[in-house]
Structures are given as structure tokens and as C-alpha cells.
Simulated scan of single mutants.
Amino acid sequence: ARALGVSPATLRRYAALWEGVVGPLPRDPRGGRLWPKEALARLQAAREAHLREGLPLEEALARVQGDFPAAGLALPSEGEALALLRALAERLERVEGELRALREENACLREALKALEPPVSEATLRR
């Protein structure tokens, strides 16, 4: 947090964004996140782009990804990878459910709009 000039709470929020966009950060034995130098440099570059260009931080993180090597960033363990895949599958299932609900609502709204349209008279059809 000191290296970036942000509060610990902000760094935790950044870490959650990081893990959603880039992947898990390495952890110390007590479970605390470790920030490799490359990760901090990338986060700082993304934060600067976020502040300078008004980009959402997630987009800025994705944009600067190609500018930094992956060296020094730990790959998740098999258990962590499975947990991430499960979480992604659950999120995908929720999003698909929301999409189904929106499609159903859209169909209902279209039907309601049809009911509001004035009836077509024979005189209109003859024109």
C-alpha cells in the first residue's frame, strides 16, 4: 500500500480486481497476498492509466498486460485453479440465468407492445 501511496483497504480492492483480471497473487504462509515487483509495476501503470485516461481499472489492467512479463507471478496450484474454475462456472451459470430472465422479460414486453398497437382497419389495408 505504501509503495503505491494508497490505503490498505484500497490495495485489497485492487488485489480483488487483479485476481479477477490477471489471476491469483502468491500468498504468504498466513494467507496474505504477496505483490511481486512486476505485479506492483503493472498495477502502478494500470492505476496511472486509470487516473490519466479515466479507464476502469479492470480495463487498464488488461491493457497494460502486454507491457509486463509474467515472470515472478506465481501460477495457481491445482486446488486454486479448480476453485477458480468452480467459481467461474458458478458465475457463468448465474449470468446465463440472468440472460434467460432478460430474454423472457423482453418477450413479455414485446407482447405488451403489440397489444398497445392500434388495430389495423380494412380501409388502411386497401391503401
Results as ranks from 00 to 15, higher is better:
Leu17Met: 01
Arg47Ile: 02
Gln65Cys: 06
Ala89His: 15
Pro119Asn: 14
Pro36Asp: 09
Arg30Leu: 06
Arg13Tyr: 11
Gly23Leu: 07
Ala9Gly: 01
Glu98Phe: 07
Pro8Tyr: 03
Cys108Val: 13
Leu102Cys: 10
Ser121Ile: 13
Gly72Ser: 12
Gly54Ile: 03
Arg110Glu: 14
Glu98Arg: 14
Leu55His: 04
Ala123Asp: 10
Pro118Gln: 14
Gly79Cys: 00
Leu55Ser: 10
Leu84Asn: 00
Gly54Glu: 03
Ala16Arg: 06
Leu88His: 11
Ala115Arg: 15
Leu43Gln: 02
Asn106Lys: 13
Glu111Gln: 15
Ala9Ile: 00
Ala39Val: 09
Arg52Cys: 07
Leu84Glu: 03
Ala101Ile: 08
Arg2Asn: 04
Pro24Leu: 13
Ala60Lys: 04
Gly5Arg: 01
Leu4Glu: 09
Arg63Ala: 07
Ala81Phe: 06
Leu40Arg: 05
Val22Thr: 07
Glu53Ser: 10
Val120Ser: 04
Arg94Gly: 00
His50Arg: 05
Ala112Ser: 13
Leu73Val: 11
Glu90Tyr: 05
Glu38His: 12
Leu40Ile: 03
Thr124Cys: 09
Ala123Met: 11
Leu85Phe: 10
Ala101Val: 05
Val21Thr: 08
Leu17Asn: 03
Arg63Lys: 06
Ala83Gln: 04
Leu88Trp: 05
Leu88Glu: 09
Pro24Ser: 12
Arg63His: 08
Arg30Trp: 06
Ala1Asp: 11
Leu55Gln: 08
Leu85Asp: 15
Ala1Ser: 12
Gly5Ala: 04
Gly32Ile: 01
Arg110Thr: 14
Thr10Val: 00
Glu53Arg: 13
Glu90Lys: 06
Arg94Thr: 04
Leu51Pro: 00
Ser77Lys: 01
Ala74His: 00
Ala45Lys: 02
Glu98Leu: 12
Leu55Met: 13
Leu75Arg: 12
Gln44Val: 02
Ala46Gly: 01
Asp67Met: 09
Glu111Tyr: 12
Gln44Cys: 06
Arg91Asp: 15
Arg52Asn: 11
Glu117Met: 13
Arg103Thr: 14
Gly97Gln: 09
Arg30Ala: 08
Leu99Gly: 11
Leu17Thr: 09
Leu113Gln: 09
Ser77Gly: 05
Ala60Leu: 03
Glu58Trp: 00
Leu113Ser: 11
Leu73Gln: 05
Leu125Thr: 15
Val21Ile: 13
Gly54Gln: 02
Ala115Ile: 12
Ala41Met: 12
Leu99Ile: 13
Pro24Asp: 13
Ala115Lys: 14
Leu109Ile: 14
Glu48Lys: 04
Arg12Gln: 11
Glu122Phe: 07
Phe68Trp: 02
Gln65His: 10
Ala123Leu: 10
Arg33His: 03
Arg2Val: 09
Ala101Gly: 09
Glu98Ile: 03
Glu78Arg: 06
Ala49Leu: 14
Glu90Asn: 07
Arg63Trp: 01
Ala39Ser: 11
Leu40Phe: 08
Leu109Tyr: 11
Leu102Lys: 10
Arg13Pro: 00
Arg63Gly: 02
Val21Asp: 07
Glu59Gly: 13
Arg63Glu: 09
Ser121Gln: 12
Leu113Gly: 08
Thr124Asn: 04
Arg126Ile: 15
Gly54His: 02
Arg127Phe: 06
Gly5Lys: 03
Val64Lys: 04
Ala3Leu: 13
Asp28Tyr: 01
Glu80Asn: 02
Glu80Arg: 03
Ala3Ser: 13
Pro36Trp: 08
His50Met: 08
Glu80Leu: 00
Glu96Tyr: 10
